[in-house]
Design a protein around this nucleic acid. Structure first.
Lengths: 224, 224
DNA sequence: GCCAACAAGATTGTTGACAATTTTGTATGC
DNA sequence: GCATACAAAATTGTCAACAATCTTGTTGGC
């Protein structure tokens, strides 16, 4: 569930739970973009002082999840098409690098269970519109790749980008046909990884993100 | 000079200057890795309250420039070889993407002045060991590419990564032969950009970072 | 002489109160 | 009726004091 949990283990101060709770609400669209965040309200709700909320705001702003206007407070960051494009352009190369490094650093057999997961049964799963199962599989693929790439810097960046696009990705799966194509692409990527072809896997992952970006463009009216 | 100034224009609060000042000291190695940062000392020096210093610490920690140990304070982050490798692995794809986007989005003629800058006279400049001129040229190349790539997310990530490796890069130029090779690589990259060959430019930039990484490995005893 | 227990000092973590700024509501003049 | 000026309320920005935790120096015992 928690995308950023891959690397953040340290510092369990009083305010740490606040950051995570706010992050979760924002990426889950519990707090919709543009929502104004009042320090005192949140402080009362979480039972901490305003200073803790302020600390959380500083960090969430640095991650791009909220925007702050001097003397006016904090707003949940909006995701306009231009900004979404920027995020896709960066994800394209970072996720491709993730797959490349994972292929190079992990033994080929370690992907067998994921190949099984994305295998024959997945088609039927999607036919029944069981999107949760698909989302879980993609999420697992992602987590395994991040772990295998053994690069904390990359991991943190991917988590940060993922937080900002999670809502969009989730909605994209709703578009008829997108999940099927995504499944096929993951099968191809995994096949390349199983064969140890890091460069090919990287290229395929890049195409996967570009493809997602194109679907987003074609359906952006419905997605944002 | 200020690498992170490309995008951070907003929020000129009292504490904003503190962040920038501390960042500058860290990336310039004015504060060496492992240095302990005491809140009260810095608060007195900058003439602000400890809370402002604390805010700055939060942000610098998020950017990976300092590390915090609970109840023990903040240390300037150390850059061990493993972490340096991680940074190179990420820079490799992000800077390549930067060059690709810059080539695609900016008119070919716009690189003519940089081609001139990295042209014939540069060889003599390096022969005289005028490293400042070389560093300035590389810095200008970088800034122009970031601006041309028109991607704020990418720009922020590159600035953040650059801050963490600036000292290392600066020292790497000292290694005999590295500057000459870097110059040649930039000439090739710029030639590809001038020709509008985005994919080739991307590939060359990738090789440029990989090459820098190898030099770093070979001379890491002297560099860290 | 060396180690452990304890106490004093230093440093970070947290809070509530105060100051500065912006927004909102109201009254007044045209 | 509408716009402007002013005042009150709400909200954010800043700070200094207090509490908790860790480090360091000292003393006593073996």
């Amino acid at each position: 569930m928690a995308a950023a949990s891959t690397a953040k283990i340290v510092r369990l101060g009083a305010g740490e739970g606040v950051i995570e709770a706010l992050r979760q609400r924002i990426v889950d669209h519990d707090l919709t973009p543009g929502t104004r965040l009042r320090e005192q309200d949140l402080a009362s709700e979480f039972g901490v002082s305003r200073a803790r909320i302020r600390d959380a705001f500083n960090i969430l702003e640095e991650r791009g999840l909220i925007e702050r206007i001097p003397n006016r407070g904090a707003l949940v960051a909006k995701l306009d098409p231009a900004k979404a494009d920027e995020l896709f352009e960066v994800r394209e190369v970072l996720e491709a690098q993730m797959v490349r490094l994972a292929t190079e650093k992990a033994p080929a057999e370690s992907w067998d269970d994921l190949i099984e997961l994305f295998g024959d049964s997945m088609g039927g799963t999607l036919a029944k519109n069981d999107l949760d199962a698909y989302e879980d599989a993609v999420h697992l693929f992602r987590q395994r790749c991040i772990a295998a790439s053994e690069n904390e810097v990359l991991s943190n960046l991917l988590d940060s980008l993922y937080d900002r696009t999670q809502v969009l990705i989730r909605r994209l799966v709703l578009v008829p046909g997108r999940a099927q194509e995504g499944m096929r692409q993951h099968q191809e990527i995994l096949a390349a990884m199983r064969a140890g072809k890091a460069e090919k896997a990287e290229k395929l992952k890049r195409q996967n993100i570009r493809s997602a970006r194109e679907w987003f463009h074609n359906y952006r009216k419905y997605l944002l």
